[in-house]
Lab assay of single mutants.
Amino acid sequence: KELVLVLYDYQEKSPRELTVKKGDILTLLNSTNKDWWKIEVNGRQGFVPAAYLKKL
């Protein structure tokens, strides 16, 4: 499993997105899109802007 660090808080703006908090370490599911990465948070899957995340 690949992990990502959340660099900035992000509030979901659609049902396909997820809310994340700065400092969270989460599972990366897909990073093929350069702008939006798919991650998992508490069993939910969704997208967060790639600029808000850093691969560990």
Rank of each mutant, 00 (worst) to 15 (best):
Q45H: 11
N30D: 15
L56A: 04
R44F: 08
T32G: 09
K38M: 14
L26D: 01
K38A: 10
P15H: 13
P15A: 10
K21S: 10
I25L: 08
K55V: 11
N33D: 15
N42D: 15
D9H: 06
S14R: 11
V20D: 00
K22M: 08
G23P: 01
V41D: 15
K38L: 15
L53H: 00
E2P: 13
Q11F: 14
V20L: 07
Y8L: 11
V41C: 11
N33T: 07
P49F: 02
Y52L: 10
S14Q: 10
Y10G: 01
N30L: 09
R16D: 12
D35Y: 15
V41Q: 14
V41M: 13
L29I: 15
G43W: 04
Y10F: 08
L56K: 03
Q45Y: 10
G46K: 02
W36N: 03
D35E: 14
K38N: 08
L26T: 07
K1D: 11
E2G: 11
K38V: 15
I39S: 03
L5Q: 08
E17V: 04
A50D: 01
Q11W: 15
K55Q: 08
P49T: 01
L53A: 01
L18N: 03
L53R: 00
K38R: 13
P15S: 12
L26Y: 14
Y8C: 10
N30H: 08
I39K: 00
I25R: 05
A50S: 13
D9G: 05
N42A: 10
L18Q: 05
G23F: 04
W36I: 04
G23W: 05
S14H: 13
L26P: 04
V20E: 00
K54L: 15
L29S: 03
P49L: 04
K13I: 09
L5N: 02
D24K: 04
G23V: 00
A50M: 05
R44V: 10
W36F: 10
K1H: 15
R44Y: 08
Y52G: 07
D9F: 04
E2F: 12
L53F: 04
L18D: 01
N42F: 09
T19A: 06
K21A: 10
I39N: 01
K55E: 06
G46M: 09
K55Y: 10
Y8R: 13
K22I: 04
L7D: 01
V48L: 08
T19N: 07
E17F: 06
L3C: 08
D9R: 03
R16K: 12
V48Q: 00
Q45V: 13
E17L: 05
L5I: 15
Y10I: 01
L26H: 15
Q11S: 14
A51Q: 12
V41W: 13
N33A: 08
P49M: 03
N33K: 07
A51P: 09
F47P: 00
L7G: 01
I25Y: 05
K38S: 09
W37N: 01
K21Y: 15
K54M: 15
L26G: 14
N42S: 11
